[in-house]
Nucleic acid binder design. Structure first.
Lengths: 245, 245
DNA sequence: AATTTTCATTTGTCAGACAATTAAATGTCT
DNA sequence: AGACATTTAATTGTCTGACAAATGAAAATT
């Protein structure tokens, strides 16, 4: 492996890219041990410091893991769904918060994706997922629940719905869409009346999945999407009125 | 900011987490300059080396960018859709290839998500997206096209469809689903007959979007999903028969 | 045979140095 | 005064050399 010294990029970035490419192309396979830092430093003709910075970049993407001690080293990491969820959520959250994505756009995307899961969930959902959804609906009706806790319960409810499709790839993709929206959802103040309406729609969706009725589940999600956007629209209108009376 | 020395994790990982949390919670805003490496080293009571490794971790996630020279430093980066696409694709690709995700599962997820875009694309697609789709269909019919080139054109076609929904959040999410599947799609050998059938279905979808007929577009995608899975099933069956005759 | 000790290897951290870059500050000339 | 060249200070990028900490293998001991 060699590095282009004429490139303007940092050496550590170039080395990270070279190793990343090797992993993605299959030249380095899962659990394979990379050469030691000292060996890599020699191969790339850079200092150990630079190699280490490159390895930290890869570790940040969960592409490698490191272990100290003799027979330790850096190993190609099997990217787990668990780790991938985390990264998806981090990226999605920041993407939404940093790019002035409107509530409507994010909401539309989230529910469009969630509705894609509905037919599969109607067919495949187990008693387990249904129980989670019912439990969260119950929690959402409790008195003294903060808006944050209500939103968190909402996320759990929807993740159970998505998991009902029993497709890990869908669950992974939806993790970003559902959890990434939480900060935006947290901006809404949920009145007792709006909570009641959301709970009603949640029940409608849970009932539909209970009956394995894909069409009804989809309609319930559509209604929930519409209601959420209406709610957000009202909150926004109120705020603007308060700012410029 | 302080660091827990009793924790087992690397100092650089802890520092990276502390800064990442500050960014995600809004304590550090976009384009804000972080303290210099020397200052951070003093604040966290570690060496500059360790701080640098932490910053490289954050840079790998596109959370910060660095600039040399006086008045340079590390700045909180506005995560662009562009950068997020890239990370999504990297993560999705590795996730699929490293976890023995079956073709059917990946295919199901991809088309479920894509069908979520269809109704929006039928309403909002511009002439631009339609032109891209038609052009790619034309390319797909050319003689002497390699399987890889055919797949690449397929990706472009589907991304145009997704972009037709004119929802950047959807486009971002689908980038992972569509492009992450490319290595799996590349494993299929496309015969002249199967290419013709795929082109027929692509035309059917493009026609539906042309007419702004959401139902027909959805049906076309469903048919394409089914055909793709059939095709993959046959390829798999052939390979197994060859391995154990 | 089981246990303890030693040892070599490897990553994690540190201190100090210098190169490269860059924008501001300063100086110089017209 | 304004345009241009030079200096300067701050900051990241890289290197060197060192030591600590962890860890599994091998050797020594019981």
């Amino acid at each position: 492996m060699k590095i282009d010294p004429s490139s303007s990029a940092d050496l550590s970035a170039q080395i990270a890219k070279a190793i990343r490419d090797a992993i993605m192309s299959g030249q380095l396979i899962v659990d394979e041990r990379l050469p030691s830092e000292a060996e890599l430093a020699e191969q790339f003709d850079v200092s150990r410091t630079t190699v280490r910075e490159a390895l930290k970049r890869l570790a940040a993407q969960s592409l490698i893991r490191t272990q100290r001690g003799a027979f330790g080293g850096a190993f190609v990491n099997r990217l787990s769904f668990e780790e991938a969820y985390g990264q998806q959520i981090t990226t999605s959250t920041l993407l939404l918060s940093m790019n002035h994505v409107s509530f409507d756009t994010a909401c539309e995307a989230r529910f469009a994706l969630e509705r894609a899961c509905a037919p599969l969930a109607a067919t495949r959902r187990t008693a387990d997922q249904l129980a989670t959804m019912r439990a969260e609906i119950h929690r959402q009706g409790q008195d003294g629940l903060s808006d944050e806790a209500f939103c968190a319960s909402d996320v759990t409810f929807h993740r159970a719905l998505v998991d009902g499709a029993h497709n890990p790839v869908l669950s992974y993709q939806l993790a970003g869409a559902v959890e990434g929206m939480q900060p935006l959802m947290n901006m809404i103040t949920f009145t007792a009346r709006s909570r009641a309406e959301i709970i009603r729609l949640h029940n409608r969706i849970a009932d539909a999945l209970d009956r394995r009725d894909a069409g009804a589940a989809d309609a319930g999600l559509e209604a929930l999407c519409h209601y959420t956007q209406t709610l957000a629209g009202e909150v926004l209108k109120t705020r603007e009125a308060r700012r410029a009376p």
